[in-house]
Amino acid sequence: MKRFIVTALLLAIRAGGYGQVLLEDKDGQQIVTNFYDNFQRSDKIALIKLNTGDQSIGFDYFTSTVLHDPANYQVHEFGVKAKSTEGFGPVFTNGQFSPGIRLQYSFTQVPFLKNATDYVDWAGINVSYDVNTYPMYKRDTTFEKQFFSKSFKGLSIYGNYNALIKTKLIVNLKAGYARLNNYDELATVNGQDISSMIDPVTGIERQAIRKQSGKEGPFDEFDAFPLIISLTKATPTDDVSTTTGVANAKKLRIGYTVYFKNIVTKSNLPNTNAGIIFFLTKQDKNGVRSPVFGLDVQAADPFDIQKSNTGLQNRISAGFTTIFSL
């Protein structure tokens, strides 16, 4: 399904620069984990993350041991993310809200193996737990049970390895286990309950319409083994001690992240996604370039491994992603 989501972003609370890149892909998966430069100004960071791709809002809190040793420290991240599992369309049209929440913890060691001019790395583990409620529809059952809710609980554990190479390129490798489901692949059914009454005095007929939606089809949960590889071209800091540098520091610079996601399961064909996130960065007074926003273009199953034969252009989707510091 070809989709292009453009949602107004809350460009409100941006106080100070945090994050060279902290971007998520269209499915809400954190692709790049390379914001540890920010711990050089504070050992604790709080962030709000908005993603129009999976229509979520998240809050992250980071604490680190960087004050003890700025050349060898650990970072703990605590995160919570909330969304409507059906997106916000049904919330606005039907008043129907199906909550989904993700609790997340991660531990990262900086550096991990090497700390040199041409190569600095960091690595860690990430554990998250999803609790989602999904509205479903089943036509071959009694009328009052046709629309119902399905709950899902899924644990994910990832390991990640990241390296900054030659001071500009960031490589990320992420792999692990995730409990997933096929909800996004099911077809949406929109229902209308119409009740009528006639006023015996005036003879006017009144109809009350209640709308609801759900997804139809076999709901499957399964064990999956995702692998994510990404390469980011970071945007360099402009030296403000020169006239040229001052002028360049005011400019927005373009960086990008190319990523490849592959999810292997026992029962289904591999689910592959490839994408690119373009992001614009702005330099703050501390010389840190932070993304103003990112545009994510993702091709689902670019090699048509699932044999859908729908044409690549129909499997491309896009969304905006950004972060705000508190």
Partner: peptide, 10 residues
């Protein structure tokens, strides 16, 4: 004082 995106320093 750091200027720019510094990951580690000594």
């Amino acid at each position: 004082k750091t200027f720019g995106s510094i990951i580690t320093w000594k």
